[in-house]
């Protein structure tokens, strides 16, 4: 098991290196760089920029060196000092901009992931057991709607209805009166009262999809012989469900964890923009629009690295839950 984990982690390193190289190439592709931006900016404010000054800036940022050296400098700063460079648009180091927003990003995404599992797994099991019942048809209908309606659209509808019909302001994570205040009990309660909407909106699509997966997996497993064998042992229906088919049916949900971390960053982007949330996604998105290349680079690199990290995470969990993966067995029957 330990050997499997170590092997799995070692295998991730070349992947991360490859992603960082690709990221670097991507952020170098568009014309212009930090220095041209800065020179333009200085010129716009009336300062004459001499050739020497420009060259000095180039040297300062290492832009006069060849590409591979610049790559090493860039990745070196990230690895050793967690320095993703400077965001031109925000006039702050990239790391600072992202870190500010990281807490909310994690909180919202984690909560909606938990909501997804808590709702989807039991409901998926239930409708599989009651296949073709009225409940099953109803849930199936609702899950199709949940998967088909985009979260951002739902967010807009809710905001519109809340504002026009009930006069309630929806959006953001804090009410205006708490927006700039330091942390207090009141601010925390205010956060909770605003948090549920993005959590639910971000969770809807995933919940609907997970119900479908769980239902399909359970229907497969419920027909297997070992369920009848378990019944022939004298176990009750609930004991059978929890100890037998669910143990296998849960596996795709665990592999689905692979998408959890990258989804933290990019999955709910549209909903976050519509709801005006102080999370990492919208900040990085606006960076892309503003050609803020260090910011964009950080975004691509983080999403890529998180994808790999969560793949490791879900592979290890899967190995814990399914011994066939642990022992590298190929099922004969």
């Amino acid at each position: 098991m330990l050997a499997y984990i170590i092997r799995r982690i070692l295998r991730a390193f070349p992947q991360i290196i490859l992603i960082s190289i690709l990221t670097f190439i991507i952020i170098q592709l568009p014309p212009g760089d930090l220095v041209t931006q800065q020179i333009l900016n200085l010129q716009a404010s009336g300062v004459e920029v001499s050739q020497q000054h420009a060259e000095m800036l180039m040297r300062q940022y290492g832009l006069d060196r060849p590409m591979h050296e610049r790559y090493l400098l860039w990745i070196g700063n990230i690895v050793t000092r967690f320095d993703f460079g400077y965001s031109y648009a925000w006039q702050k180091p990239v790391a600072e901009v992202i870190m500010d927003r990281m807490g909310y990003t994690f909180a919202i995404a984690l909560l909606s992931a938990i909501l997804t599992w808590v709702v989807a797994i039991p409901v998926g099991i239930f409708v599989a057991v009651k296949q073709y019942s009225i409940t099953d048809y109803f849930v199936t209908f609702m899950t199709f709607i949940g998967m088909a309606v985009p979260g951002f659209f739902l967010a807009m509808v809710i905001m519109y209805v809340a504002l026009t019909r009930f006069g309630i302001r929806v959006g953001g994570l804090f009410s205006p009166e708490y927006m700039v205040q330091p942390w207090s009990w009141g601010k925390f309660l205010d956060l909770l009262s605003n948090l549920w909407l993005p959590v639910v909106l971000l969770g809807i699509g995933g919940t609907a999809g997970t119900i479908r997966t769980m239902r399909a997996m359970m229907l497969d497993e419920l027909r297997k012989l070992y369920v009848t064998v378990a019944r022939a042992k004298g176990l009750s229906e609930t004991q059978i469900l929890v100890r037998y088919p669910v143990r296998v049916a849960i596996n795709p949900i665990i592999s689905g964890l692979m998408w959890l971390l990258p989804w933290l960053f990019s999955g709910g982007l549209l909903v976050e923009i519509v709801l005006n949330l102080p999370t990492a996604g919208p900040a990085l998105y606006s960076a892309l629009l503003a050609q803020d290349m260090h910011m964009a680079g950080a975004y691509i690199l983080i999403v890529g690295a998180l994808t790999i990290v969560s793949a490791i995470f879900s592979d290890i969990l899967l190995a814990v839950s399914d011994p066939r993966i642990r022992f590298g067995a190929v099922e004969g029957a």
Partner: peptide, 16 residues
Amino acid sequence: ISMVFQEPMAAMLPVR
């Protein structure tokens, strides 16, 4: 009363 079935390969849950 106990029962033994035809398919020994499928009679036990693989993950336990």
